[in-house]
Nucleic acid binder design. Structure first.
Length: 308
DNA sequence: GATGCGTGGAG
DNA sequence: TCTCCAAGCAT
C-alpha cells in the first residue's frame, strides 16, 4: 500500500484518533433503536441469529422472522435437532436461503464442538459455516463485549466520508480500510463494543447511502467529506445487480413452492414456475447442489431432511 | 478479486 | 417503471 490513508490513520496523534469516539457514542446512547437482539435477554445466540439474518437484508424485514425463530429455537441445540429444511422453511422470504442452511450448520457445530454455547473466540466463530470476518467480529463484540474492528457496509461508508472525504467507499473492502478501522477502535473493550454498534447505527440512520441527513450528524463539523464540499463519488461504477430473468429469480420461485409444501413436490408442479426448460433445470440442479433441495426417487423434490 | 446468491421497499 | 440498495459469505 503506497498511500496516504493508511499513514494518516496510523500517524495521527492520539487526540485525532479518539476525537470521533465521544460524539458518536453519545449520539448512539441518545438515538439507538431498541432492537430485540440488543436486549440482554437476546444472548449470544440471539445476536448470532440476527447477524445471519441481517446479512444483506433490512432490519424491518428481519424483525418478525427473528422473533419467530428465537421462540421456536431458543438455543442452538434446538435448531440443530431439526432437519435443515425446517430452517429453510422458517427463513421465509428473507432471501439468500443458503444463509438458513449455514445457520443450521453453525447451530450443529456449536452443539457438537462447543457444548451448545456460542463460542467466544474470534477464530472459533470464524470457523463456523456462514461466519465471515464481519460476523465473527460482530458477535464477539455485541454478544461478548470484546474489542474488535467491526467493518460492515455502514461503517465503511461512515469512514469513507468522515475520514477519507469520499462519498462512498471502494467496491471491495481494502487493506487500507481494515487498517483504518483497527486504528480507530477505542482502547478499552466496553467502549470498543459501543463504538462498533454506534458507527453502524450512524451509517444506518444518518450517514445513509442515498440521502445522508448531515443536519443530524454528531460529527458533521469534523467530517472530511463535508469539509471538502461533499464531492460526488468518482470511481468505477458500482455494479447494479439485475434480477429479472436470472437463475436467482428461478431458484427463488422453485424454493417458494417447496417451502409452501409439506409433502414432496412432483417435477410437473415445479415445471410451472418457469417456461424455459434449460434454465429451469439448471436452477433446480443448483438448488440440489447447494443442499437447499433434496431430490427423491420418482422425480419428486422436497426441502432437505438432513440434520447436519 | 470477481461472481453468484433473494427479496422487497423507497425514491 | 426502473434503479438503488439492505449488519456478507463462499468459491
Amino acid at each position: 500500500m503506497t498511500a496516504t490513508t493508511e499513514d494518516a490513520a496510523t500517524a495521527a496523534p492520539d487526540h485525532d484518533r479518539t476525537a470521533l469516539h465521544a460524539p458518536v457514542v453519545d449520539w448512539f446512547d441518545a438515538h439507538a433503536r431498541d432492537l430485540p437482539w440488543r436486549r440482554p435477554e437476546a444472548g449470544a445466540w440471539g445476536v448470532m441469529v440476527s447477524e445471519f439474518m441481517l446479512q444483506q437484508t433490512p432490519v424491518s424485514r428481519v424483525l418478525p422472522v427473528y422473533e419467530q425463530w428465537l421462540e421456536r429455537w431458543p438455543r442452538p441445540a434446538d435448531l440443530a435437532a431439526e432437519p435443515s429444511g425446517e430452517a429453510v422453511r422458517a427463513w421465509g422470504r428473507l432471501g439468500y436461503p443458503r444463509r438458513a442452511l449455514r445457520l443450521h450448520g453453525a447451530a450443529a457445530a456449536i452443539t457438537e464442538r462447543h457444548g451448545g454455547d456460542v463460542p467466544k473466540g474470534h477464530a472459533q466463530l470464524l470457523a463456523l459455516p456462514g461466519v465471515g470476518e464481519y460476523t465473527a467480529a460482530a458477535v464477539a463484540s455485541f454478544a461478548y463485549g470484546q474489542r474488535h474492528a467491526v467493518l460492515d457496509t455502514n461503517v465503511r461508508r461512515v469512514f469513507a466520508r468522515a475520514v477519507n472525504g469520499r462519498q462512498y467507499p471502494p467496491n471491495a473492502t481494502t487493506a487500507a480500510e481494515r487498517k483504518l478501522a483497527r486504528a480507530l477502535v477505542p482502547a478499552d473493550d466496553a467502549t470498543a463494543a459501543r463504538w462498533a454498534a454506534a458507527t453502524m447505527e450512524l451509517g444506518a440512520l444518518v450517514c445513509t447511502a442515498r440521502t445522508p441527513d448531515c443536519g443530524r450528524c454528531p460529527i458533521a463539523d469534523r467530517c472530511a467529506w463535508q469539509q471538502a464540499g461533499a464531492p460526488e463519488y468518482e470511481g468505477p461504477p458500482r455494479r447494479t445487480q439485475t434480477y429479472a430473468g436470472t437463475d436467482r429469480q428461478v431458484r427463488g420461485r422453485l424454493l417458494a413452492v417447496l417451502r409452501e409444501s409439506h409433502t414432496p413436490v412432483p417435477q410437473a408442479v415445479l415445471d410451472r414456475v418457469w417456461h424455459e426448460p434449460v434454465q429451469r433445470a439448471r436452477a433446480l440442479d443448483g438448488l440440489v447442489a447447494d443442499g437447499l433441495v433434496e431430490p427423491l426417487a420418482g422425480g419428486e423434490y422436497r426441502l432437505p431432511q438432513s440434520r447436519g
